[in-house]
């Protein structure tokens, strides 16, 4: 991947993130923060790669810690987000026909 192509991806993804959030009602701020907290749990993939290529014991130890923390980020944030959003059951919302 050339440096500029990477920068283009970076730019477009940044706009996407901005647009996705732009018109969010206040009541969803906390769940959404939690949800984006979950999405950066993708760090787990990087941690797995780091540990997967680790050679020395030191690298393995740091890599192990990385996977441990990354997995906790992903799993914990998922559960917390799901629990928050569970509250938004469409209990009685007239006129939506959903």
């Amino acid at each position: 991947m050339s440096g500029f192509l990477a920068l283009y991806i970076f730019m477009l993804a940044a706009f996407t993130g901005y647009e996705v959030i732009a018109r969010v009602p206040v009541i969803l701020h906390t769940p959404l923060m939690s949800g984006s907290n979950f999405v950066h749990g993708i760090v787990l993939v990087g941690a797995m790669v780091a540990l997967g290529h680790a050679q020395t014991p030191v690298e393995q130890a740091i890599g192990f810690a990385a996977v441990l923390m990354g997995a906790a980020n992903a799993a914990g944030a998922y559960v917390v987000t799901e629990r928050m959003l569970e509250m938004f059951k469409p209990s009685r919302k007239p006129g939506d026909g959903a």
């Binding site: 991947m1 993804a13 993130g17 901005y18 959404l32 923060m33 907290n37 950066h40 760090v43």
Partner: peptide
Amino acid sequence: EAMIVAGTVVGAAGTLL
């Protein structure tokens, strides 16, 4: 690429939030 896209999206969305 998955890390780049997901990380950047969260970075931008989080900044706006």
